[in-house]
């Protein structure tokens, strides 16, 4: 698979006495869709935010496109080509959909005509054209998730981090969301998806990394993951409080 786009080595992060991540390592190839899964409290969100630059790890290295990025901050990560969405949707509510996406487009565009053209493309790609000029706060929850994706895509990322984008959607909406993810990958963008509901993710991803209690449990193809006894135990244990 050649040089990976993203390579994580020995990442550890503690919040007070709680170890959120312990010695995590894996690699993501360019063009791959990787699932980052695990029950609640597995350390997915912490790791996700470390990759996005929002929090700095205590130890470890992250190489993105040949560059060391651990602890450089979210702004620098965005500039290097890492886009992200948020678990709890964050839209710019005083702006329209178009204006929201233009903020992202302005990362690469100086002039507003260029930003507007880029934003228009991405809005159409994400199926929000009919909602282009409405205020962001009037969107439905699934539309807001699409808006976040459009905004991130407008920055022209090479790696897109999606935080629980399928959670809370109806089966129809989730199907539409999965189509969108495949379309994004078809554009050559590498994707890491965080979900704690494993079932919805498995048909979509090439590979999964399973976290449990802050550590990497295993990584592999979806078919191997579901059969693995430790995964079953981790999930059932979580569900039944055992």
């Amino acid at each position: 698979m050649g040089e990976p786009l993203l390579e994580i080595r020995g990442i550890s992060k503690s919040f007070g006495s709680v170890a959120a991540n312990v010695d995590i390592g894996f690699a993501v190839a360019a063009g791959e869709i990787l699932g980052l899964i695990g029950p609640n409290g597995a350390g997915k969100s912490s790791l996700f935010n470390i990759i996005a630059g929002e929090i700095a790890p205590d130890r470890g290295e992250i190489r993105f496109a040949g560059q060391e990025i651990a602890g450089i901050g979210a702004v620098a990560c965005a500039r290097l080509g890492i886009g992200r969405t948020f678990q709890v949707v964050r839209s710019f509510d005083s702006m329209t959909v178009l204006e929201n996406v233009m903020v992202g487009a302005f990362l690469r565009a100086r002039r507003s005509a260029a930003a507007m053209a880029r934003a228009g493309e991405v809005i159409e790609f994400c199926g929000l054209t009919t909602r282009r000029d409405v205020p962001a706060h009037s969107l439905s929850p699934p539309e807001k998730r699409r808006l976040e994706i459009a905004r991130a895509l407008a920055t022209r990322p090479r790696l897109l981090l999606l935080d629980e984008m399928l959670t809370g959607l109806t089966p129809t909406e989730a199907q539409a969301g999965m189509r969108l993810v495949r379309d994004i990958r078809a554009q050559g963008i590498t994707i890491i998806m965080v979900e704690h509901v494993m079932e919805v993710l498995l048909p979509l991803i090439d590979r999964a990394v399973v976290l449990n209690l802050g550590r990497k449990l295993l990584e592999g193809a979806p078919a191997e993951i579901v059969r693995h006894p430790e995964v079953i135990r981790a999930y059932l244990g979580d569900r039944y409080g055992g």
Binding site: A78, F86, L107, R151
Partner: peptide, 8 residues
């Protein structure tokens, strides 16, 4: 946080 994630 959203602004930062877009490179602002």
């Amino acid at each position: 946080a959203a602004a930062r994630s877009l490179g602002v």
